[in-house]
């Protein structure tokens, strides 16, 4: 059983929901990313999604686009990110999942990507521009090494598509709360409840909800229906605003703690 499966089994027993945070590796630099991961673990985060920055992130809104640009400029690439993860893995126990675009994975070589990621201590991958029908090679390589492949489900997915997404997903299923790109929203669409219920009827695998979730109140609402809550852009904003400040870790911790409390209903 890999770290992700263990996490969800444990949380289920505790009747708790997973708190997942996305940060872009290399924003503001890889050293700080390593330290941020350790801080996130101490401050209520159950799983970290590490973004490998891509020049053309077409599923992302302005916040993560900017983070990706900063990260690329800081010199982050798959190789340097793997080295960072390798050393961070010695300090943290939480599951780590890569999130990146398909060109980077296919350019690196799918088998090597899975092998090297697994060896560095990464537990799975999310590729937002790779629907399950194009993912045969990745799924095959990942299965061999117990490496999770998390696919995305959307409000526009048909039942047939949801069934396939659920069948192909390992680790968890990423439900995209809205039609749109990543980024904070003041309001989340009202059809989330119906759509998550629809998905949960199809599968027993954990369903985590992301895109748009930006404050404790929204996180609380999501935690009622899903197995996990994913927050990205809202955390990136805190990193962006404090990138050069000594208080970077303190500010990020404070924010993730508030989200954790929201999820736990405290």
């Amino acid at each position: 059983m890999n770290r992700i499966d263990k996490l969800f089994t444990k949380l289920k027993k505790q009747r708790k929901k997973a708190f997942i945070v996305y940060i872009t590796a290399g924003d503001p630099d890889l050293k700080k990313t390593g330290k941020l991961v350790a801080e996130l673990e101490k401050n209520g985060v159950d799983l970290v999604e590490l973004g490998i920055p891509f020049s053309d992130p077409l599923a992302d809104g302005p916040t993560i686009q900017r983070a990706s640009q900063r990260a690329i400029l800081s010199g982050a690439n798959i190789k340097s990110i793997l080295q960072m993860v390798h050393s961070v893995r010695k300090k943290v126990k939480l599951p780590l999942v890569f999130m990146t675009y398909y060109n980077l994975v296919s350019h690196y070589g799918i088998k090597n990507f899975v092998k090297d990621s697994k060896n560095a201590g990464v537990d799975g991958v999310i590729v937002p521009d790779l629907p399950p029908e194009e993912a045969k090679e990745l799924i095959g390589a990942a299965k061999k090494r117990d490496f999770a492949t998390v696919f995305l489900a959307a409000p526009t997915s048909t039942k047939k598509r949801l069934k396939n997404i659920a069948a192909k997903s390992r680790g968890f299923i990423y439900y995209v709360s809205l039609t749109g790109v990543t980024g904070t929203r003041t309001r989340l669409p009202s059809d989330i409840i119906k759509n998550v219920k629809r998905l949960k009827k199809i599968t027993k695998k954990p369903v985590c909800v992301g895109f748009g979730v930006s404050n404790p109140k929204q996180a609380r609402r999501i935690s009622h229906l899903a197995d996990g809550v994913i927050v990205g852009s809202a955390v990136i904003k805190v990193i962006e605003e404090n990138a050069k400040s000594k208080d970077l870790y303190k500010k990020v911790s404070k924010f993730t703690n508030s989200l954790r409390k929201g999820i736990d209903g405290k």
Binding site: Y102, L130, P131, E134, A154, T156, S157, T158
Partner: peptide
């Protein structure tokens, strides 16, 4: 049927668009 010309083509887009493409 899946949109390939030899090894080229395909559908590499976010899930949100897949139904629209279908």
């Amino acid at each position: 049927r899946s949109g390939y010309f030899g090894g080229f083509g395909g559908k590499f887009v976010p899930e949100t668009l897949m139904h629209a493409l279908e």
